[in-house]
Simulated scan of single mutants.
Amino acid sequence: MARSDRNLSWTPSRPAETIGIMKRIVAVVHDGFQLLDLAGPADVFDAANRVLRSRAYSVETTAPHSGPVATSNGVSVCAQSEEELPAGQIDTLLVVGGSAPLHNPIDPALVDIVTALAERANRVASVCTGAFILAAGGLLARKRVTTHWLVTDRLAGNHPDLEVEPEAIFVQSGNIWTSAGVTTGIDLALALVADDYGHDIARQVASGLVVYLQRPGGQSQFSTILRAKRPASDALRELQAYIDANPAADLGIAALAARVGMSPRHFTRVFTAELGIAPGRYVERSRADTARRLLETTEATQEWIARESGIGSTVTLYRVFRRHWYVSPGDYRRKFRTHIRPTNA
């Protein structure tokens, strides 16, 4: 018996006649690319077609050579060569990531196809390490960009003319859109749908795909705990847990050093060596993560959240959010608030 698509038939919020000309997405792949970098955005555009009840988007795949292109997980995708692609304008050129863009130099044939197709594209976008390919072709010169957090330093070092945002989910700089690692390609594609057809359509697409709408470009790629290394010593592991569990406590260098029986100078040196981050910086990020969670899950006032997270004042809370997530606390709460738990604050 045929499978019913009833649960995938979402009601559009705007009539199909407003859709206009089908938007052509051309994705550039290469040997060893990350499948999710392609599949995630492609499924977003496919879902948008169902929401809009029209073929609003088409997705084509191209590579330096035609035929099967192997992904990093062994699955192969059939691609056309540049010569086999139909002529005409491209709405969005999407360059996917993988290990190949980290090679130095990047395959010249890959750079050539991207730069040639970019001339025909209204928008140029990359997922994960696809930013390295765009940079190699000179397409990111003097742009604000991002990529996977593991290689942001490398991108900035290879291309000092770029303004690399190390924690952003995605960044738009003119007609150039770059996203962070792997699943953030979905966030990027949802942002492109919102840019084309409005946030309500993007929200319906995200709902149908059961994904979180919508992490703004400035949301951090990862939490404080993921950023830091795991300490080798039991004492520092216990101290790390204490910091994360007690953000409003005295977490100054002297107090923390006393808890582990070290001088402040020696403690700072050992903590930084074992966790890969200075203690003051770790405390700030841990408190920011606490405030972020409280904004997402409570109705507490910003004054209360600033106190409970150890940040102190609403003025400092605002500065911390602008520094870490590029949005105000109020904007963050409006975009990310989940089911609200009662609070006595």
Rank of each mutant, 00 (worst) to 15 (best):
A241Y: 11
A194C: 08
T183C: 08
T298E: 12
G88W: 08
I169A: 09
W177V: 00
Q221V: 12
F336T: 13
I186N: 00
L294H: 10
L162F: 06
R123Y: 14
Y332H: 14
D5I: 12
L93R: 05
V124R: 08
G185K: 02
F170V: 07
R281C: 02
V111C: 07
A136S: 12
R14F: 09
F321N: 04
L85D: 02
L209D: 06
T338K: 12
K229W: 10
Q172F: 13
L226H: 09
E167H: 14
A235N: 11
A255W: 06
S13V: 15
F45V: 03
I340R: 15
E84D: 12
Y332V: 09
Q302H: 09
T152P: 05
L256V: 03
M22A: 14
R293G: 06
A249N: 08
Q80Y: 02
A288C: 15
G97I: 02
S309F: 10
E163F: 05
R6F: 05
A191R: 02
N344M: 06
S66I: 01
D5N: 13
A168D: 10
Q221R: 14
E165P: 00
R293T: 13
V210M: 12
G97K: 07
D37S: 04
V270D: 04
L239P: 01
A232G: 11
D91K: 04
R259A: 11
T178Q: 01
L317G: 05
E284V: 04
A235K: 13
A206E: 03
N175Y: 03
A273L: 13
C128T: 09
R269K: 11
I90W: 00
P101T: 09
P264E: 02
L35G: 01
V96L: 02
R3K: 14
H103K: 15
W304R: 15
G98V: 03
R322L: 10
N73A: 14
D37N: 08
H65C: 03
R334V: 14
A291M: 06
S99H: 13
C78L: 14
V44S: 03
T115A: 07
I133M: 02
V211C: 11
N7G: 01
Y318G: 13
H159I: 03
A125W: 09
Y332I: 11
